[in-house]
Design a protein around this nucleic acid. Structure first.
Lengths: 253, 253
DNA sequence: CGTCGATTTGACGCTGGTCAAACCTTGTGG
DNA sequence: CCACAAGGTTTGACCAGCGTCAAATCGACG
């Protein structure tokens, strides 16, 4: 056991944050020694070209990934052959925990743009985690948050109007871009309208109409994949289902 | 360390299976000693009346639960005040892992019928798990399977026609009842049409019409909450989205 | 046997899916 | 640097599926 070293810790934290591993490390619960151990097993700077896959259904869980640059989508093909987009993964967000349960991936992760990822080999992660209760706990927490996100997503897909879904998507994306250290108002979408549609459970034309409608209403400016959020406050309200130009139909008192 | 004791193990396994803890214990990975330790901390036979809650949003994670009798639904209230049903929990299925991430429940669990539950206090579970890597892993596996289920649910809610959703719901329920040791064809639904509707993201009238349609097509016999599956094979096909796409009032060929 | 909530059934209109075509953006090659 | 090609995106027209409102009927339980 060594005495905690504030300077080293700070450097590692920065490096970790830079490498976007902060979801695993930063939110407290991991001390200097543990962070150092974790750092040691991280494999850095693996380059993934646009369209390349990080893993695919049936692949054994090799590791968890965090993009430093670029973006990913995770998808499954349902039995009718349709692609369902489960989620998008921006820099700093953990990818690959879906195989946690079975040890085998059920979805595939595709790079939406050329990406730089860090990889934590799973065997070594569990080995380290087994010796570090706080990391174990942190791992649980990250998984739990993933579940939370899924449930939120689920809530969005059901019972929300198409335009609300689009607004919520854009709003959420902005928030996440902000945490990733990018602008939340000047957005270059890494995914196509079709990807968004398959994420939101809509037809791609409906997504497109949603964007157009938001532009008409002065909420955003759209030019293809370039989106400028003009009225962030309004976007947030629309996302939370507060208004909607057409008065809402019958609702609980 | 004691030598594994097959007789004791068998007894415990049975007891565990009877108590419906099998999701945590049975699927291998837990040996006799570990199972014994786990058994020791299980609190048995807590009685929950219909409508009573096991936990609610904001409640700290006290333990994980498994119903031995009865059934539960887990729900959240979205920001517009609507109740969204996240899932139903039949005997043998673990309840309460949603608080894994944060340590605080985000949903509430309500008994749909008077229930008998076993509780594993969380603090003790983690304490035991910390010393038993295989249990730790098994815990992860159960959580992972929960995530899987969520993603399947998600897949159902999107892109599926209303009638397909109803068929898939009934089919899935039957399968789960079978694993719980009950009949998969003679079903007494513990939940209302409204609960089902809020689970599937439909209006309750649409769910009702879905049941009626399945009856017209000779798939099931419905009398209120009593459902008899007449043609299980057809139900399975409908659930998997094969056929359907039948002209307005035509029967399935 | 009566009451009350749950379920079914009917009628109608809106949201959003589908088909189709025009338009824009981006990348490529001349 | 421009022209062209190939996706990607937008927009329009149409209509069917399903949500909403309303009322009748059923089932559970006192």
């Amino acid at each position: 056991m060594t005495v905690p070293d504030p300077i080293d810790l700070a450097r590692l934290r920065r490096s970790c944050a830079k490498c976007s591993l902060h979801e695993l490390c930063v939110p407290a619960g991991v001390n200097a020694d543990e962070l150092r151990q974790l750092e040691r097993i991280v494999q850095r700077n693996r380059r993934i070209e646009r369209g390349e896959r990080l893993f695919w259904p049936g692949a054994p869980l090799a590791g968890v990934y965090v993009a430093r640059e670029g973006a990913f989508k995770t998808t499954v093909i349902d039995e009718s052959g349709e692609e369902q987009v489960l989620g998008f993964h921006l820099p700093g967000e953990v990818i690959g925990l879906d195989a946690m349960g079975t040890g085998v991936h059920r979805c595939e992760a595709v790079a939406l743009a050329t990406a730089e990822v860090c990889e934590i080999p799973f065997a070594q992660l569990t080995a380290v985690a087994a010796q570090l209760p706080s990391l174990q706990q942190q791992l649980m927490r990250v998984i739990g948050q993933g579940v939370d996100r899924d449930q939120v997503h689920l809530g969005v897909l059901v019972r929300r109007q198409a335009n609300e879904r689009v607004a919520l998507f854009l709003h959420g994306l902005g928030e996440r871009l902000r945490t990733a250290g990018q602008s939340a108002t000047r957005i270059r979408l890494p995914m196509s309208r079709e990807d968004i549609a398959r994420y939101l459970g809509l037809a791609l034309e409906t997504v497109s109409r949603g964007f157009s409608r938001l532009q008409e209403d002065g909420v955003i400016e759209v030019t293809g994949r370039q989106v400028e959020v003009v009225d962030a406050a309004l976007l947030a309200r629309l996302a939370h289902g507060v208004e909607e130009r057409v008065p809402r139909r019958g609702r609980i008192a």
